[in-house]
Amino acid sequence: MNLPIPFLILSFLTILSALYVVTSKSPVHSVLALIFTFFTISAHYVLLNAQFLAVVNLIVYAGAIMVLFLFVLMLLNLSKEIEPIKSNAWAIAATISAGSILLMITAAFQVFGEAVAKNPVEGIGLVKALGNVLFTRFLVPFELTGILFLAAMVGAVLLGKREKKPTELSTNETINP
């Protein structure tokens, strides 16, 4: 197999950083590694001629979502927390599960995925082309996602709002220390 070097490097970095996300003890390190993973994935998008998505990926994931994560970490002051490590049994179970899923999905693609014919079209990953599709065929879903977003925002604000009665909070604390 003769693979292009940039792809190999990118893939290697992607997997490495993803593994670090999973294994890192510190949540902050995980977040940073995840941001790095997103960067590499964006790079993959560029390789795949999906320029618009590459940018959006950076903006949305790396820029917005991961910042949210960082904010929460800081808000809860969790950077120092060492979570209890699960037993070895769990590690084995998780490995086996994840491994078998890997095996299964690979096998599935082996069976069904080979039939895809390569038929690249120039410029579908550009803003112009995507925007055209998005605002014609996918107009209604697009509007609906807007409503979804609004709902999520309202929900998040409502959930995150501090309770008015501090006494209630304290009783909850005593119940669930």
């Binding site: 599960s97 994840a98 078998s100 899923i101 299964m104 999905i105 096998a107 599935a108 069976v111």
Partner: peptide, 13 residues
Amino acid sequence: MVVGLCLLLAFNL
């Protein structure tokens, strides 16, 4: 869930 997913896939494969 994962086990179930595996079984489902295996069953289909």
